[in-house]
Design a protein around this nucleic acid. Structure first.
Length: 195
DNA sequence: CCCCAGATTGTCT
DNA sequence: GACAATCTGGGGA
């Protein structure tokens, strides 16, 4: 399991380093996991697309806690899973957008009501549905036994294999190059030219 | 309360 | 490639 300090890195650095790490989710006796292939950074300043950019509200409150807690919010009737970054009081996070299914694939297929492994974790809302991530995990510490955590399997991802693009879906600060995706991954969201 | 934008997804052409 | 479905949070009345 990754130490809490890992998540307190600068937000764009963390977003890049999370590529290739594994996201785990334990529900009862079932363990679900996937290798992260796509992330986006939401910065503590100068980023109007960041939920914490305007002011503290009940929704974005956990973004202001220390790096390493989960920030889960609902949008368009779906959930999105983020890891709060940096230090307490700043208001920033990394959105986990897509992952390659590793374990618990049959359970995730059932949760998503699909047979395709390419349609399980290939988007932020899909990933949350497949792994049963919802607001009950909001504010949970990923370095404690809360049923959701990140592991490093030791495999290195060379920086040259990470492609940088603008973020997907945001309407403000749309030009910022803050999306990171494993080059040529079949498990990323969006069309192939963005991989 | 009411209104509506939004870090999405699935379906249809 | 276009667009509707879906629903919550936050701002305004």
């Amino acid at each position: 399991m990754l130490p809490a300090a890992f998540n307190q890195l600068e937000t764009t650095a963390l977003a890049k380093l999370l590529i290739g790490k594994s996201l785990f989710r334990k529900i009862g006796k079932t363990t679900l996991s996937g290798r992260i292939v796509e992330t986006e950074a939401y910065l503590p300043s100068g980023d109007s697309a960041c939920h914490a950019a305007a002011k503290r509200t009940p929704r974005n409150e956990v973004m202001f806690s220390f790096g390493g807690v989960a920030y889960v919010y609902a949008i368009h009737a779906k959930h999105c899973f983020n890891i709060v970054s940096e230090s307490e009081g700043l208001g920033c996070a990394v959105l986990i957008r897509a992952a390659e299914p590793i374990s618990g694939i049959e359970e995730m297929k059932a949760n998503r009501e699909t047979d395709s492994i390419y349609n399980l974790l290939s988007g932020p809302g899909k990933l949350c549905q497949a792994m049963k991530i919802d607001r009950s995990l909001n504010g949970k510490d990923l370095s404690k036994p809360n049923g959701v955590w990140i592991e490093d399997d030791g495999s290195k991802v060379d920086a040259s294999r990470i492609k940088v693009t603008n973020r997907i879906g945001v309407t403000s600060a749309a030009e910022l190059p803050l999306r990171f995706v494993l080059a040529n991954s079949e498990f990323a969201s969006g069309p192939k030219y963005m991989r």
